[in-house]
Write a protein that binds this DNA or RNA. Sequence first.
DNA 1: CGAACGATGTTCT
DNA 2: GAACATCGTTCGG
Length: 195
Amino acid sequence: MQSLFELEAPVEEVAPRLVGNILVHTKNGRTTAGRIVEVEAYGGQGEDTCSHANRGPTPRNTVMFGPVGRLYVYFTYGMHYMANVVVHPKGVAGAVLLRALEPLEGIDLMQRRRRLSDPKLLCSGPARLVQAMGFGRADNGRRFGTTRLIIEPDGWQGDIAIDTRIGVNGPDASRPWRFCAAGSPWLSRPIRSAK
DNA sequence: CGAACGATGTTCT
DNA sequence: GAACATCGTTCGG
């Protein structure tokens, strides 16, 4: 990723721009990669009741407040990790949750990590893609832009489908902050808003 | 099909 | 003590 895609902008503007780019992770000499097809935006302190950052900094969410271009990994539901790209719009916290990838490279390794062969189930969900890509707690705060962790532009030009975020509650749950590659067969769930 | 639910443990009130 | 940015399985129509 050359210029971090101008990540220092409002998170709801950065999030759709990340769709179509390729997430690349190299671990123990093996590379897995996938096209980002689904993301969600999460805002800063006092801006978004659905965001971990809403109530201010805590031990868990410190990476969200930190420098731009880092990976924010957290643990939830007693068994799952999820990963975000940290965005830094004008000094406030913000992050883009990675919700689904189209598997492109290292699919055999993804299948081993997931203990599944069905390609549709490898990266179509925030906890699934984290497992397939080999992310974990140790990757919280890791910088993008090294050979180990890259977001690669790819010239992808497709339509963005917009929806409300999945699995959140509260006043801001109805914000249209879920951004998907329109028509992609790799989404975690279908687009609902077109109903 | 879709809806319901249990697993499982960290985080914050 | 409750909630949790989920997943995989089971159950019902």
